[in-house]
């Protein structure tokens, strides 16, 4: 039962951030490879505020503002740079932000992380926290499905398919990109708010490169842009990821094997969807 509760939390916790990133990368074909950069800033904003003030509402607000600010920078870069250059530069920002989080020891305690993150009294047990997170995840899926069919969903698809034509019919790229990045900032802040209370420790190792790879793997395996497909991929791949811990393999090999397995899955997913990940532009 505790493992089921844990799996339920982990799956639900991935959903808001990953589905929001799917709007940017999967639907909008915007190479935002720095989602972990937003996660770091939002998580540290929440935990530092929470530890210093004790106010959960203020902590969430600070985390959200931090995430929105860095997302605005990412959105601006997405308009300015070529797609592949954006991919590399957002990854560079991820590294730079992580580097600051590790080195600013007076504020973040560096590689030691920040332990003892308080929990809301309502979340006294992991079961309550997991069920609440699951409800939030379901609501987020509904929101994403609505967004997918909304005017915004059509506009971001149009920009991804043919930017010039989309602009010629009055679609503003900066506006659409800002909305997409802000949705991700909100999703990430919700995730950070719950996960910090679940783990009760904030550690920089949780924001390394493999976490971002898991995003991309789920989005490509589940079909880029598809809300339900990506949700299904999150469920299956999280079960696989967590299930690896029970395989009879030496402890030191678990991490490297996980990297290899998910690398292979990502490659197979791209191979399988090689015609649909970046479809050719339609022309008359």
């Amino acid at each position: 039962m505790p493992f089921f509760i844990h799996i339920l939390f982990v799956i639900s916790n991935w959903i808001p951030s990953m589905l929001s990133h799917n709007v940017i990368f999967g639907k909008g074909k915007i190479f935002h490879f720095g989602p972990m950069g937003v996660a770091i800033i939002s998580s540290y904003g929440i935990v530092i505020t929470l530890k210093s003030t004790g106010s959960f509402a203020l902590a969430f607000l600070v985390g959200l503002v931090c995430a929105l600010l860095i997302s605005a920078v990412f959105a601006w870069l997405s308009v300015k740079l070529e797609p592949d250059a954006l991919g590399v530069i957002t990854l560079a920002m991820h590294i730079a932000i992580l580097n600051i989080a590790i080195n600013w020891t007076s504020l973040t305690r560096g590689a030691l992380g920040i332990p003892g993150v308080p929990r809301l009294s309502f979340f006294s047990s992991n079961t309550t926290l997991s069920i609440t997170m699951a409800v939030v995840a379901v609501l987020w899926i509904i929101f994403m499905l609505y967004l997918d069919r909304s005017s915004f969903g059509r506009q971001i698809s149009a920009l991804a398919e043919h930017e010039w034509y989309a602009k010629s019919i009055g679609i503003s790229k900066i506006k659409i990109n800002l909305i997409a990045f802000f949705i991700y900032a909100l999703g990430m802040t919700i995730v950070a708010f719950f996960s910090m209370q679940y783990l009760t420790i904030l550690h920089p190792n949780d924001f390394m490169f493999p976490a971002f790879i898991f995003y991309i793997t789920c989005e490509l395996a589940g079909k880029p842009g598809s809300v339900l497909g990506v949700t299904l991929a999150i469920v299956l791949l999280t079960i696989l990821k967590e299930g690896l811990r029970f395989m009879p393999i030496p402890t030191g090999l678990t991490g490297p094997l996980e990297l290899i397995i998910f690398g292979v899955i990502l490659f197979v997913a791209v191979w399988w969807r090689r015609d649909s990940v970046f479809p050719n532009t339609r022309s008359v």
Partner: peptide, 24 residues
């Protein structure tokens, strides 16, 4: 040749595989 952005993702997958192999 299908799309010049596809290798960006496939080589990310390769980087993970090579990372795992280096560690092992």
């Amino acid at each position: 040749k299908r799309h010049r952005f596809l290798p960006l993702v496939t080589t990310i997958a390769l980087s993970m595989i090579l990372d795992g192999l280096i560690l092992i």
